[in-house]
Design a protein around this nucleic acid. Sequence first.
RNA 1: GCUCCCAUCGUCUAGUGGCCUAGGACACCACCCUCUCAAGGUGGCGGCACGGGUUCGAAUCCCGUUGGGAGUGCCA
Length: 486
Amino acid sequence: MTDTLVRTPGTASQLASIHMDAPRYRFAPSPTGFFHVGGARTALYNWALALRTGGTFVLRIEDTDESRNSPEWTQGIIDALAWLGIESTSPRFEGPYFQSANAELHRVAALRLHAEGKAYWCDLTAEQIQERAKESGRQGYDGYSRDRGLGPGPGHVLRFRVPEGMTVVDDLVRGRVEFQNDTIEDFVLLRGNGSPMFLLANVVDDIEMRITNVVRAEEHLPNTPKQQLLWEALGHAPPVWAHVPVLVNEQRKKLSKRRDKVALEQYRAEGILADAMVNYLMTLGWAPAGDTEIVPWSRIVDEFRLEDVNHSPAFFDVKKLSAFNGDYVRMLTPAEFIDAARPFLAGDVPWPADRFDQSVFDSAAPLIQTRIGALADIPAMVDFLFLADPKIDPDAWSKTMATEYAADVLDAMSEGLRGCAWGAEGIKAVLDAFTESRGLKLGKTQAPVRVAVTGRTVGPPLFESIEILGREETLRRIAAARSRLT
RNA sequence: GCUCCCAUCGUCUAGUGGCCUAGGACACCACCCUCUCAAGGUGGCGGCACGGGUUCGAAUCCCGUUGGGAGUGCCA
């Protein structure tokens, strides 16, 4: 790492050159134990941009808060990014860096600001600040220690001396945003214990890592003038800012882990395909050209532009995600589908592990591929193939077996299936014969058979299912159901 | 409260002054297909928050109102 930061407050030509090199984007999550879908979208935006500009995606773990630090959480972030297609082995990828590793650098920068008169020490406690605010009727810190000339000491915080004037943030998605500096309080750079605050650490790291483009969620917009002031105070031209709208729930509140399902890992565990998640996330706040939103990543990389990102918050709609996923599941080749299903057929499944037969599943797979929203729906759709006895749904039973032809259709199938040619066609012919002889509809007569064999009224096509199940087992199930009818 | 952001069908969006009688997708409804359920096909429902301007002309530009949201820590 170079130390462009601490030494020289870059000359004009240096500043210019920073922005002429290939852009450097960054994604700077704090490790919190799970990966937020909002973070996923931000990461994807940065990744797409880095790819299309020939730039770099820098991953920095913002772990300066002790309570948010755990090595396995960092691994979780890297795994989640990899799942999204953001591979740490890519030449476009850099990091992970750890903010905590730069703590000394942050302090040096803060002290330099103090030496230059751009920051000052303050000994007021949070309570004292509150009291003063209450008395004066104004909010926040009032700059009490600005000219007291205090030095460092136990419990003394270092505050940034916000200059007079106005700070203009040029934002690629927001446009020009103006902040009057007198609405920005002298914020803390160094805590009473000497440790650096996020705002400082973030800026120092960005400078240190030669970040040229900061693309992050809108919630950081109010921080931006402070950070820009810091960039300038440290002698550098600020990066190109872009604040994308936040993701919200149905109440239009920012997605929070408390009330909303936000963990990427959870969607993954439910069998949302990575491609579907990526595609869906990219359509929140942005849309590809044309009349379909289902587009390959390569097209997204070609077309995505921050200037086209919507300005208002987007509702993270699980239903639409699921629809996207259904599309992606159906796009899979049979072999790909079987492969994708694999993790969902072991472990917590409704059948005993030793009864599972991969080849049986393989032949049933095409029948269920169009029938699931997420991969986790698969077991419930094929459980009858691997259970010793089908799990009979009571409602399905009472509804279908109460018909006056239920016993007869079971008898007819029992009889006909014994000698028919074994295949969906032959099996269907048996039921057809009975159905016609009674002047009924196939839709009616198949129901008792389906319940007897699979336990449910809905499921994959019956005749193919029976074919896969096998003659002997089918006959056994039909007989079992028939005997229950007395 | 203060600072900032935002405002097109229920939702995600297209739209950058005339191609808009506002397009697509999800959801929903109907029909077709059909052994159930899906998938697929066809059609339907449904929107420029409101009020002023500017303009020959406004969803598109300006102002205001209203309504949402974010931030407001010695968290990140």
